[in-house]
C-alpha cells in the first residue's frame, strides 16, 4: 500500500551532504510530490470507507482519519519510513569497506550522519511534504488545530520522531558490518518501517493484542505520536516522554554497536 520503490532511485548520485545535495533534484522532487499526493488520494478514500463502516475507530473521527493520511504522506519521505535516507550510503560504505576511511575522521560518525540526515529531512519535509499536505487540507475535511501552541508541540514531536527514525536506521545500517549484505537489510527496514509506523493503517486502528504491541514499539514514535499530538489525541508530556525515551535508548544502543563495529574494523585491519 505505501511501500513503493523509486524513492531511492529517484534521488540520483548520492555523495556529498545534506540539504543542498537533495535540493538539486528538482524534477525528482516534483515527481515525488505527485506520487505522494496520488497515494494520499487512494488512502483517503479507503479510510473514509473504513471509518464510515466503523465510526470512531481508534478514537478518530473521519476528519481525523483524513488528516492522518495526509500527514503520513507529508512525513513519509522526511522520516524515511521505508528507508532511503543516509543509511543507504552508510550501508554501501560498509559493504565496500570505505567506512574505514570515515573512522579516521576527527568527527563522531553518529553525529556526522545525524547532521547529514537532518539536512535531508528538512529538505524532504519542505520539498515533498508541504504540497501533498496542503492539497489534502484544501480538498478534504481535516481536523487541524488553530492554536499555535499545539503546532509548536507538533514541531517538537516531529524533531523527536526524526531522532527515533534516525536511530532505528542507524542500527539497521550498522548490522551490515556483520551481515555484509545491504539488500536484505534494506528490505527488512522497509517492511518494518512501513508496517510498524502505521503507514498502511493508523496504529490505533490495529486490532487487539497486535495493536497493544505496535503502539509501544519505537516505530510508533515516528508517525502515530506526532499525529496524535497534532490532533490533540494524547497528552503532550506523555508523548514527548515516550518519544524521548526511545530516542535516547536507541541512540545509546547505536553508540554501543558503533564502537563494537569500529573494533571489528580495526581488528580486521579495514
Amino acid at each position: 500500500m505505501a511501500a513503493r520503490p523509486g524513492l531511492v532511485a529517484g534521488v540520483p548520485g548520492r555523495g556529498g551532504g545534506g540539504f543542498r545535495r537533495y535540493a538539486t533534484y528538482r524534477v525528482a522532487t516534483a515527481a515525488g510530490v505527485f506520487t505522494n499526493t496520488v497515494f494520499g488520494l487512494i488512502l483517503v478514500y479507503t479510510y473514509l470507507a473504513l471509518w464510515e463502516a466503523r465510526p470512531g475507530l481508534g478514537g478518530y473521527d473521519q476528519a481525523q482519519a483524513v488528516t492522518y493520511v495526509w500527514l503520513a504522506q507529508a512525513l513519509f519521505a522526511m522520516l524515511a519510513v521505508q528507508g532511503g535516507g543516509f543509511e543507504v550510503e552508510l550501508m554501501e560504505r560498509v559493504r565496500t569497506g570505505e567506512i574505514a576511511v570515515d573512522l579516521y575522521r576527527p568527527v563522531d560518525p553518529q553525529l556526522w550522519w545525524l547532521a547529514n540526515d537532518m539536512g535531508r529531512a528538512v529538505f524532504q519535509l519542505l520539498g515533498r511534504g508541504v504540497v501533498p499536505f496542503l492539497f489534502g487540507a484544501l480538498f478534504f475535511p481535516t481536523a487541524l488545530p488553530g492554536e499555535p501552541a499545539v503546532w509548536a508541540a507538533f514541531g517538537v514531536s516531529l524533531l523527536l520522531a526524526l531522532l527515533v527514525s534516525f536511530a532505528i536506521r542507524y542500527l539497521f545500517a550498522l548490522s551490515v558490518f556483520w551481515l555484509l549484505d545491504g539488500q536484505g537489510v534494506g528490505q527488512a527496514l522497509m517492511v518494518t518501517g512501513v508496517f510498524c509506523s502505521g503507514m498502511t493503517l493508523p496504529l490505533n486502528a490495529f486490532p487487539g493484542a497486535l495493536g497493544d504491541v505496535v503502539r509501544v514499539l519505537p516505530w510508533a514514535a515516528q508517525l502515530q505520536v506526532p499525529a496524535d499530538v497534532l490532533m490533540g489525541e494524547t497528552a503532550v508530556s506523555g508523548a514527548f516522554a515516550f518519544q524521548a525515551a526511545w530516542a535516547v535508548a536507541l541512540l545509546a544502543l547505536g553508540r554501543l554497536v558503533q564502537s563494537a563495529a569500529t573494533r571489528r574494523v580495526v581488528v580486521q585491519g579495514g
Binding site: 500500500m1 511501500a3 479507503t46 470507507a49 473504513l50 463502516a53 466503523r54 475507530l57 549484505d181 539488500q183 536484505g184 528490505q187 527488512a188 522497509m190 517492511v191 512501513v194 508496517f195 498502511t200 493503517l201 486502528a205 490495529f206 486490532p207 487487539g208 497486535l210
Partner: peptide
C-alpha cells in the same frame, strides 16, 4: 533467496492491511 522472501513479505503487507481493516468491519464500501 533473501530478497525473494523480502519481496513476498513486502507485497504481502498490503493484504495484511486489508485483513486488519476487516478485523474491525464486516464490509468495506
Amino acid at each position: 533467496a533473501l530478497t525473494v522472501c523480502g519481496n513476498l513479505l513486502l507485497s504481502g503487507l498490503d493484504f495484511v492491511a486489508i485483513l486488519l481493516m476487516f478485523a474491525q468491519v464486516d464490509a468495506l464500501g
